[in-house]
């Protein structure tokens, strides 16, 4: 979460993407280059701006499942706990 490891890991797991492909996919979605994904300065700003979770305690920022709902939209994937949450919130 300091940079983009959680996002790259999600693509490895959910789509069986090898490292380079997963990095390219995430970079494209974030509108940066794969090289930028490990730039902690750039990624901190970007994560804060996209509100997808940061490592520090930032008041009013999304955290936990709130961030994951946004990560789903950003990466175009479904996250199991978000699906569960949506199913249970149906009235």
């Amino acid at each position: 979460m300091r940079t983009a490891g959680d996002l790259v890991a999600r693509m490895q797991f959910s789509r069986n993407m090898r490292l380079d492909r997963a990095k390219e996919y995430v970079a494209k979605k974030l509108n940066v280059t794969p090289y930028d994904l490990s730039d902690v300065y750039l990624m901190r700003e970007l994560r804060e701006q996209l509100d997808i979770g940061v490592v520090t305690a930032l008041p009013t920022a999304s955290r936990g499942i709130q961030s994951k709902f946004k990560i789903e939209d950003l990466l175009g994937i479904k996250i199991n706990c978000c699906e569960n949450y949506r199913a249970r919130m149906k009235r």
Binding site: D6, I52, G53, I65, S67, N84
Partner: peptide
Amino acid sequence: MEQMQMLMTVP
């Protein structure tokens, strides 16, 4: 697991 999924962001 249900509670931790609420709190955590990484897979």
